[in-house]
Amino acid sequence: MTTVDNGVNVQALLDARKVLAGAPEAAQFTWRASSKWQNGVHSTTTVEKFFGLGQEQAHKSEAVFDADHPEVFAAEDNGITPIEYLLVGLAACLTAGVASVAQNRGIQLRSVESTVEGQHDIRGILGVDSDVRNGFNDIKVTFKIDADASPQDIEALVAQSQKRSAVFDALTNPTNVTVEVA
């Protein structure tokens, strides 16, 4: 038997699934980000700590993300636009899903590439037309996958990764959002 290694510790995930089935409270996570206005529409957001498995946790190191608008928006382009971060999240989440599902199904991956395109009518955010929504009208993800599997098995990998994706769910289903001033 050849060993499939996509670098995903599926056993740990399956074990966690078993343990958390009997301990739903430990499965409650809080992800956090803190943002600071710089200048103009430029902000920096840092991510380090989160809560999960019943206690405070932290990433190995703090990550800092710059967000700004491009020069065509008359801004300085110190970073990608906030809505582009959604594409980053979606691509990363689906890719992680493909790797995990492939590992679980014994499929060796050689390369997984994807492009994500979000269609955005900016008349919404500019207030040109109140019938136009602010967010994406449509998002399209295209995967190119080289793996030891039939085209149908690869289709199934991608379908299953969507089924188990946090970001896919967050984008396709409504979420309650509370914004307040402390």
Partner: peptide, 24 residues
Amino acid sequence: WAAVRDGRALFSGGLRNVFSLADL
């Protein structure tokens, strides 16, 4: 059907994938 907000039914945008899953 994911939620009701302000008297509106909100549906998932993931329809394409449930089609794919069932077809596969």
